[in-house]
Design a binder for these strands. Sequence first.
DNA 1: CCAACATCTGAATTACTGTTCAGATATTAA
DNA 2: TTAATATCTGAACAGTAATTCAGATGTTGG
Lengths: 135, 135
Amino acid sequence: MPDLPTERTSEISDDGEDLCCDLPHNGSAASTQQLQQAPLSSEKAQRMAEFLGFLADPNRLRILSILAEQEMCVGDLAMAVGMNESAVSHQLRTLRTIRLVSSRKQGRHVFYRLQDDHVFNFYQAVVEHLDEPAK
Amino acid sequence: MPDLPTERTSEISDDGEDLCCDLPHNGSAASTQQLQQAPLSSEKAQRMAEFLGFLADPNRLRILSILAEQEMCVGDLAMAVGMNESAVSHQLRTLRTIRLVSSRKQGRHVFYRLQDDHVFNFYQAVVEHLDEPAK
DNA sequence: CCAACATCTGAATTACTGTTCAGATATTAA
DNA sequence: TTAATATCTGAACAGTAATTCAGATGTTGG
C-alpha cells in the first residue's frame, strides 16, 4: 500500500472560530448535526458499495469488457482472460447473482452476456473516466 | 495469474448452431479470438479496479456524500457518519492518498473536501445510477 | 509551562474476497 | 452405456482491507 509523505505544511493558526468545532466534539452533537442533509443513508451506501465492489475487481472488469463486445461461453472467457474455468465460473456466478450478466444455455455451453444497456453504459462511463487526459 | 493447464483434445460436435465452441477450447483459440479488441489490459483493469475499490466502501461513500455537500473536519465527519475518529482518519488518509479528497489545516482542525469536480461528478453518476427506477 | 483537544499513526485483530482444489452435474458423441 | 467435454459447486486457503486500541504528534488556551 502506498503511503503518503506525511505532509504537514500548515502555517495557518488563527483561531478558527468561525466554522464548526467551537465546542468539544462529543458533547455538541446536536449543534453539529443540523448543518446539512443527512449523509447517505447506511442502507443506500451499502447498496452503492456493493455495486461498486462487484465492479472493483480486475478479472471481473476484464470479463465484462469482453462481454461488452460479444456474448461468450465460459471456456472461451477463461482463455481470453487467462484464468482457469473454475475461477471464471465463480466470478460469473457473482455477476449473475447481482444481475450484471445473464446467460443462456446451448448444448453443453453456457453463453454469457451483459444483462442490459444500463450495465454497458455504466461500464463505458468508468472506462471513459479513467481514459480522461491529464488525470 | 496461472494459465489454464487443462488439456482438451477432442472433435467437433455441432448441434446445429455454430458460435464458438465447435472445437475444444485450447486448440481453437484463434477462431474464438476474433474479438474486435483485446480484453481490457491487465494494467488498465488494475487501475480501474483500484479506483472502484476505493469507492466501494459504505463508510467512504458516506464520507464522500458529506464532502460533496460541504467541507468538514475530522471530528464532525466522525460524528456525522457514526464512526470513531481514528477510523475516519484512516479512511481519510486513504482517500487523500488517491487524491479523492484534499485537506486544509486550520488551527487544530483539518478540513476535508472533495478533490475536484471530477470526483464530484463521478460520485453523482453513481448515485444517479442507483437511483434509477425499476432497477 | 501544562492540560485539553484534534488528529494522526502503527500494530493487532477481525472480516472479507478471490483463487484453487477436488469433485459433482449435465450434455453429447461413440 | 461409457468417455469426454463444459460448467458448476463447496470447502479450504491466502491475501487484503477495515476497525480498534494505545499511544504519538501537534495546537490552543490558561
